[in-house]
Design a protein around this nucleic acid. Structure first.
Lengths: 342, 342
DNA sequence: AAAATTACCGAAAACGCTTCCGAAAAATTC
DNA sequence: GAATTTTTCGGAAGCGTTTTCGGTAATTTT
């Protein structure tokens, strides 16, 4: 099963290779019948164009680089899948690289992809801002690039972000409305834009409902369950357990819940919980975890569209897209919910 | 910031492009000093070879296709990450596609990748065997291909698989030794090789310990939490709840546990559980879930190595690698474990 | 019916690299 | 010091496409 080339088809039909090429790229200067003939015999022969030759001559690889901080959690997995579906449907391939939540790795990934001549990049940055000046210079050069998530809206690049502030506010307000008086926020890293924004939302809700500073706390944790557990250990040690926790993500919430349960606390009777960036297990754990769901598919699609626009037409203006999600209330944050037999 | 070519370097140094090329591919017929000079100026200029041109002339893309059934669950995510790390270190890029647990999608993915001229393929098949004859014909043609997981060891292709039978046997035997008398196996799909093998392991343990057929059951479920829940609903309806469950994976176990708890059962006091293909949340849920851990990184690396061997030397013989894992016993399957305050 | 357009197609260059072939220069042998 | 071998390099073809340019044949215009 050898690979046929454009020349094989040309020879078979006694036409020139230009004609065959014209048939595939539906150019105007080819007769309709010959075009159809070429296409048909090509199909019969099982011909597929050689993408490398095409790339070389078109000076475009039809590859798009995607860099994410990780894809162990469902969130970025879904984003990658959605990006792939969308971009393949538009005739592109994607090269996915993950940075392992490491800035240096991220820079290496981006450079590897650029050296591999991707036509554009979609980057979900990890935390830290060391690379931003480099990225911005690339953007200025006209390199098609879209940022996804975890990036300050103020930075002058095209981006798609979630409205963290708003939904953090909603989630917090829900806890307040349920009657919880003392609410702590486990906040992720403060230098991570999404965490920062969620902190702002949290504070906004506190302010709106006139809750004073001694009745709430913002505790910086990481993004892992382990880190949620550590914080709880510390709080238990200091006898400083609030009525409710609003957590930067579900994993931190699950870690914290685990540690509290291990120490005899009941959730939500003693302590209530709200997570963020909903995962599938939110409804499998006991109690089911309230969480904010982000529109991964939509975010990915928007990012893809923004990028393709840039690729097809350089100097399209910078754009920022801010998306909204849903907040699902489950037992973990409902006061007086009978948790039956746990 | 334009891209330099080999010609730019050649012109600058007053040498021919062949010489420059020789320097990069460390050929024997080039003087050491000129080679170093070329390499140095290339580096200074910020030159990077054009991968498309290279591919075209070498007739190899240095891309490797990876097809997995999904990567929402950690398992395949880890495999993909490990594959990527390994293959990039060897100078390859990977193109990852996921089949969404669908045979037709899988075939499309494989064909897309082949048309994109990947140098080889690593496939973790979804269930169903429709595509196997096609794959086997490709293998016969000499197309470098390695299968990962979910494939019968009897099929004549190179593959890396987990020793499901053995570890399923261990897990089951553990339940028996804990004193559980009536054990049900929630088995995934019977036409999925991994499920089939785990069933065999389960049966083997039953046989060894002389447990009769009316004291165990094998119930076919899917791979999702939802399906674990459905089975439990059914069993509750028929008042047919055993002492313990051995589940095809953690998600099914978690679904089943959830449903049992909702109906007033205590885990593990009333019903014990063992999962499979350990996930991170196994130790975050209450009770912590016993599970068998698969060596994802090692499996991926082995698969990568097998594939590169095939790429570098066609007609290397077919090879099968069977790997082992670890079984971690946690509270969900320990009799008389004080579950404290739950 | 001659002139002007238009439709269609082939030849050839180009994309940036690898590699084969042959030749000049250097080193070795006699 | 001539002959031979080895080292080092340049020229050129080739990888499979796209695209420009020019030309013939067909069609339309006058």
């Amino acid at each position: 099963m050898k690979h046929f080339t454009i020349k094989d088809i040309a020879d078979k039909l006694n036409v020139s290779i230009s004609t065959v090429s014209r048939a595939f790229n539906d150019k105007y200067d080819i007769k309709k019948e010959t075009k159809e003939l070429v296409l048909k015999t090509a199909k019969d022969m099982g011909y597929h164009p050689n993408p490398m030759a095409k790339s070389l001559s078109k000076k475009r690889s039809s590859n798009i680089g995607v860099v994410v901080p990780e894809f162990i959690n469902e969130y970025y997995s879904e984003i990658v899948i959605a990006l792939q579906n969308f971009l393949i449907s538009k005739g592109y391939q994607i090269l996915v690289m993950q940075s392992d939540e490491d800035e240096d790795q991220e820079l290496m990934n981006v450079q590897t992809l650029i050296n591999n001549m991707v036509d554009g990049l979609i980057i979900a940055p990890t935390r830290g801002s060391k690379n931003m000046t480099y990225y911005q210079s690339k953007v200025k050069e006209g390199y098609p690039m879209v940022f996804l998530n975890r990036i300050e809206t103020s930075i002058p690049v095209s981006k798609v972000v979630f409205n963290n502030l708003k939904w953090s506010f909603f989630a917090t307000e829900h806890l307040i409305r349920q009657g919880y008086k003392k609410i702590y926020h486990l906040s992720g890293y403060k230098d991570l834009s999404v965490s920062y924004e969620r902190i702002q939302g949290f504070k906004k809700a506190m302010k709106k409902h006139h809750i004073l500073e001694d009745n709430y706390k913002i505790i910086e944790t990481g993004l892992l369950a382990k880190e949620g557990m550590e914080v709880i250990e510390d709080l238990i040690f200091h006898h400083d357990i609030p009525d409710a926790f609003f957590c930067v993500n579900d994993m931190v919430a699950l870690g914290a819940i685990k540690k509290l349960k291990d120490n005899g606390y009941r959730v939500p009777e003693d302590v209530a919980f709200v997570g963020f960036t909903e995962t599938r297990i939110a409804e499998l754990v006991t109690p089911q975890l309230s969480s904010v769901k982000q529109p991964t598919y939509e975010m990915a699609k928007k990012a893809g569209e923004l990028l393709l626009k840039q690729i097809e037409n350089k100097n399209t203006p910078i754009e920022t897209i801010v998306l909204n999600g849903e907040f699902t209330i489950r037992k973990s944050s409902v006061k007086g919910s009978t948790t039956d037999l746990l």
